[in-house]
Design a protein around this nucleic acid. Structure first.
Length: 827
RNA sequence: GCCGAAGUGGCGGAAUGGCAGACGCGGUGGACUCAAAAUCCACUAUCCGCAAGGGUGUGAGGGUUCAAGUCCCUCCUUCGGCACCA
């Protein structure tokens, strides 16, 4: 026999990985099983990507590898797994590219999807590719529009004129969170505030349920907090203030009704409709100037110089609902029109902002809550904590909690107020003035000036936006018209307004106009997890059976950047669908995990401009898909933010190659020694537990320990490596399949039962224990776990290195924790 | 400012209150080789010491405990999120 023949073969990743990927494709290894009901299921979901032109980024495979490991692990545990992938493919970049080059967004999208699919396939993920969905596919859009209509029919989708962030350069409205310092987050174009007709989603109707049902899900603590904060429920009171000399009144919202007696002035938001009505002639000019200046500034600008308080007196006075005294009414932009009632009662003694404002404009400050019941005038700073009511007449002496209650009762009896709950959460601006989104399936009657006119040829007409008509479900999907010019233009109606043949149509001799706004990118991602259960269904969005088979999502993995918006919008739609009976659980995502961001080698966020982007194609080519997968899992805890280091990849490459050649050296006749057997069982146990708790880095480390041990053996028994092949396979599936095949198996290991362990082999009867003297390790002993305290003491004192420190001293205390530690306290 | 997460060798990181630094990268030495690469083996927190051994050490300072990276208090730094929410 030649030396070459006995030399273990090298692991040629390019050839082996391509071969197994082909095998999985040809054998449909990962097609989703038909559910019979007798086996448990797991729905393992990744946040699907936006297929950008830049292709996959090393950040993507991090979460995808984590879910793939669990999907493969659960299959091997006899669980039916749904593990799909798709594309969140509407969005601004494709449209921007279309504007620049004239290439249709559908063409760009298709090309990008192909790149993403090829790249994901090259990583060996066990997705069921027959379930792929694409949010831009008319067969998908159809059902997004269908869900919109359900919301519309329930009165949850409505039109309103709202002051929005209009970006003329992008020709679209941006969400507050998409605007940074008066510029658009994408492209840095200037943004202005203008009132526009918009489609809104009444998410506020679901505020309490969105808040309460967070108790039903297993999500990261921080994400739950962020959602709660975003909803921002706050309990307080609505209080009515009359306006002196008129019949008019206004409501304020306060969380501190107990401080009402200390109210020395009121403040209206500049946008408040009463401002124009109550301002006196002398103050008119100043107020108008102030209000118009405030309205032209963005929310962000208005809040950026929050420290400096500005405002103008209206000349009008409000009547205090309890004392009947008159307090001045001011206008100031620290009061937000969009929150509460857009008006506040100012209690400078007990609110920091009111205090600053009162100081600036020399308004009176009264103490009505005291920390100790005594009086402290003048007050040096606002006392905002709970205390005891003072200077409050009949309420004096009450605690803050008692006083709140008493004040609300008093107000109610006077018909001047009531308990009230307010939310920070606002309704969702749902329309976009863009081309590349789902058309909103609504149309409006058109009134022609000349009854024989044709709106398509520009004859004068009026669109009756207040009479929206839903497109009939049978006509869905309402497709986008083909355009060649995607430029946004001046018209806030968006590019679709130019497709006049599409926009205007006749029915029964009357003209109608389609809605030219489109849906936001969130729409498609709000319900894709439902479509994955039944992606090809052409009669319903998903069948009841498909829903029952797979919902809810058991594990959802994605970036923390979606902690609020995507997850909140998605939960909102889900709850609406729940109320309509289309889904059966109130919450869609049971367990949520955020993978941490992967930074560049320089420790900065990866970005093209920094030039620190790592392309997964390059890593796969150099080291192989299994190496990339294992490296990303070995880098550190999944949730942690961590820097990429290409030099570290060689560690997992060596591990893979050592494992490969150790297995190939196996001897089927050899029997495991006791030490090997114990370590194998412990390794299987630890890897199993670590996968379940998603501690992939320590699972890999344990397998490395085991492989290192195999290298100390002169012969490696086959029985010592078979379980190893199985437990490494979720991490390195190509390696697993190759070795499973080379150890005489003709079938894929994808459904091979997961190895078990013998607990008895995982515990030692005799352990090495450290012996401490005054907390410092001074020696080691071998001791039975069952040893008595007396045996332990004798053994410990017999150790020479220990005796050196106890010599001539008295043992004041003897600490013995069996199997853990011995500590001699001497003095 | 508020909320959240985190600070451990040269680097990534590990450690149910019980021997800090598993595992990996890098480094040093050795084996193999004509030589190199690859591979294999050993060592590798730091200070004093020829060694045996000892001292110090988990962002800083206190505390609880026989015992603290881990629990408590004060502070510093970094990252992420929110930001006049009445």
């Amino acid at each position: 026999m030649s030396t070459e023949a006995t030399e273990p073969q090298r692991y040629v990743h390019a050839e082996i990985e391509a071969r197994w990927q082909r095998y999985w494709d040809e054998h449909q290894t990962f097609s989703t099983p038909a559910r019979s009901g007798s086996r448990p299921k797991k729905y393992v979901l990744d946040m699907f990507p936006y297929p950008s032109g830049a292709g996959l980024h090393v950040g993507h495979p991090e979460g995808y590898t984590a879910t793939d490991i669990l999907a493969r692990f659960w299959r091997m545990n006899g669980i039916d797994v749904l593990h799909p992938m798709g594309w969140d493919a509407f969005g601004l970049p494709a449209e921007q590219y279309a504007i620049e080059t004239g290439t249709h967004p559908a063409v760009t999208t298709q090309k990008n999807v192909e790149t993403f699919r090829r790249q994901l396939k090259s990583l060996g993920f066990s997705y069921d590719w027959t379930r792929e969905v694409d949010t831009t596919d008319p067969a998908y859009v159809r059902w997004t529009q269908w869900i919109f209509l359900q919301l519309f029919h329930k009165g949850l989708a409505y039109q309103d004129r709202v002051s929005v962030n209009w970006c003329p350069a992008l020709g679209t409205v941006l969400a507050n969170e998409e605007v940074k310092d008066g510029l658009s987050e994408r492209g840095n174009h200037p943004v202005e505030r203008v009132p526009l007709r918009q489609w809104m989603m009444r998410i506020t109707a679901y505020a309490d349920r969105l808040l309460d049902d967070l108790s039903m899900v297993d999500w990261p603590h921080g994400t739950l907090t962020m959602q709660r904060e975003w909803i921002g429920r706050s309990e307080g009171a609505r209080i009515v203030f009359g306006i002196a000399g008129t019949e008019k009144s206004f409501d304020v919202f306060t969380t501190r009704p107990d401080t009402l007696i200390g109210c020395t002035y009121c403040v209206l938001a500049p946008e408040h409709p009463l401002v124009g009505e109550i301002t006196t002639a002398e103050q008119k000019e100043a107020v108008q100037t102030y209000a118009s200046a405030a309205s032209s500034r963005s929310d962000r600008d208005r809040s950026s110089d929050a420290k400096k308080k500005t405002g103008v007196f209206t000349g009008a006075y409000a009547i205090h609902p309890i004392t009947g005294s008159q307090v001045p009414i001011w206008v100031a932009d620290y009061v937000l029109y969009g929150y509460g009632t857009g008006a506040v009662m100012a209690v400078p003694g007990h609110d920091e902002r009111d205090f600053e404002f009162a100081k600036t404009f020399d308004l009176p400050i009264v103490e009505v809550v005291s920390p100790d019941g005594a009086l402290h005038a003048p007050i040096a700073k606002a006392f905002i904590d709970d205390g005891i009511a003072v200077n409050s007449g009949e309420f004096n002496g009450l605690s803050t909690a008692q006083c709140k209650k008493a004040m609300i009762e008093k107000l109610a009896s006077l018909n001047k107020g009531s308990a009230r709950i307010t939310y920070k959460l606002r309704d969702w601006v749902f329309s976009r003035q863009r081309y590349w989104g789902e058309p909103i399936p609504v149309y409006f009657p058109v009134q022609m000036e000349d009854a024989n006119g044709n709106p398509r040829s520009g004859d004068k007409h009026t669109i009756l936006y207040d009479q929206p008509i839903a497109v009939d479900e049978s006509e869905l999907p309402l497709r986008l018209p083909d355009l060649t010019d995607f430029k946004p233009g001046q018209d806030p109606a968006g590019p679709l307004a130019r497709a006049v043949d599409w926009r205007y149509f006749q029915k029964d001799g009357k003209w109608y106009a389609r809605e030219t706004n489109t849906m936001p990118q969130w729409a498609g991602s709000c319900w894709y997890y439902l479509r994955f259960t039944d992606p090809q269904n052409s009669t319903v969005a998903w069948s009841e059976k498909a829903h029952n088979d797979w919902m809810p999502v058991d594990l959802y993995v994605g970036g923390a950047e979606h902690a609020v918006l995507h997850l909140l919008y998605s939960r909102f739609w889900h709850k609406v669908l729940f109320d309509l009976g289309h889904v059966k659980q109130p919450e869609p995502f049971m367990k949520l995990v955020h993978q941490g961001m992967i930074l560049g080698e320089d420790g900065d966020k990866m970005s093209k401009s920094r030039g620190n982007v790592v392309n997964p194609d390059h890593i796969v080519k150099m080291f192989g898909a299994d190496a990339l997968r294992m490296y990303e899992m070995f880098m550190g805890p999944l949730e942690a933010v961590k820097p990429w280091q290409t030099s570290q990849v060689s560690g997992v490459v060596r591990f893979r190659d050592r494992l490969y050649s150790a297995v190939l050296k196996n001897d089927s006749a050899a029997v495991m020694g006791e030490e090997t057997k114990k370590l194998l069982h412990r390794t299987v146990k630890k890897v199993t537990h670590d996968i379940e708790s998603m501690a992939f880095n320590t699972a890999i480390s344990q397998m490395m320990v085991y492989v290192n041990h195999l290298y100390t053996l002169t012969t490696i028994p086959l029985e010592a490596v078979l379980p190893l092949i199985l437990i490494v396979s979720p991490f390195a599936p190509h390696l697993g399949e190759e070795l499973w095949n080379k150890t005489g198996h003709s079938q894929s290991l994808a459904y091979e039962p997961w190895p078990t362990w013998d607990e008895a082999l995982c515990v030692d009867d005799v352990v090495e224990m450290a012996v401490q003297v005054n907390g410092k390790v001074r020696g080691k002993i071998q001791l039975a776990k069952a040893a008595t305290e007396e045996e332990a003491r004798t053994a410990a004192l017999a150790v020479e290195s220990v005796a050196a420190f106890t010599q001539g001293k008295q043992v004041k205390k003897f600490v013995y924790v069996p199997g853990k530690i011995i500590n001699l306290v001497v003095g």
